[in-house]
Design a protein around this nucleic acid. Structure first.
Lengths: 142, 142
DNA sequence: CTGCGCATGTAACAAGTTACATGATTTA
DNA sequence: TAAATCATGTAACTTGTTACATGCGCAG
């Protein structure tokens, strides 16, 4: 099973009750490297977790600031989270832009980006004989 | 811009004409570490690329095997792909199950999985004094 | 007086997953 | 004879993104 927004939010709520705003903040700051969240996902998810009785909601009225809802994880929620944590990890897939680009370059530009970038940057072709190293530019096809 | 199925497929077609089946095969074998694809995504995407004139379709009738459609990238398709490749890379987000789990453990199980796993595996608590190292087990909270 | 922090939420949309349907040929 | 390979595709569904709406208080 994959670690989705559902489980992430349940996991955060294990550290104590939080508002949606706080959950958003934690995701945007401390967990931004693993997961990116938006309010358009957090609030609907919290609502759904509520209807599934995995969290409870406590409304706090405020006058100077907008009202807030504090969410607390229930026993059923803790069970659900533990179950998700003990299930096998999904394949580690790096949906990586960089890696993908590097890989695709090999397919469609066998000689690499040398000339492409040289023209873009308006740089002259270097005189490789000036360098003592035996290294020569160019892709080594697998 | 993110490297999505659209661009991935265009990138593969730069290496030559391919059928949907072949594209699927390439993604499932050679590119599975960066991206995972399903036929439910590939065929609709190819169709859409066709209506956008980024690829052309050539139907091949076969008697012993199912008919196949060979897709070729057009000039417009190559332009679109090059443009996507030259756009800034999206933030490298590792939507990593493993990393996320390790991080969340800190939140909801401050002393780590020590006792949890010891009980699961039915192992006795080790006698740490037997080890010369000054290292002691346990999480170091940040 | 502009913008930020607090605080929640919806609606339309985009993208991808799952499950299914079809069907001949070949391999174990 | 069961399963894999070839080969395409749809429909329902899940998940998440983008853009927007609301509105007070406070700091620069």
């Amino acid at each position: 099973m994959v670690m989705k927004g559902r489980e992430i939010i349940l996991g955060i709520l294990q550290s104590g009750p939080h508002t949606g705003y706080e959950i958003n903040d934690i995701l945007q700051t401390r967990l931004s490297h693993f997961f990116d969240a938006t309010s358009g996902m957090i609030y609907p998810t919290l609502k759904k977790l509520g209807t599934e009785k995995l969290v409870t909601k406590q409304q706090i009225s405020q006058t100077d600031r907008p009202n807030k809802n504090i969410y607390t994880i229930t026993k059923a929620g803790k069970t659900a989270f533990s179950k998700a944590m003990s299930e096998p990890t999904s394949d580690e897939i790096l949906k990586s832009d960089v890696l993908m680009r590097l890989y695709l370059v090999k397919i469609y530009r066998p000689n690499g980006y040398q000339n492409f970038f040289r023209k873009k940057l308006n740089v002259r072709k270097p005189n490789w004989r000036r360098y003592k190293s035996s290294w020569q530019p160019g892709w080594q096809m697998a």
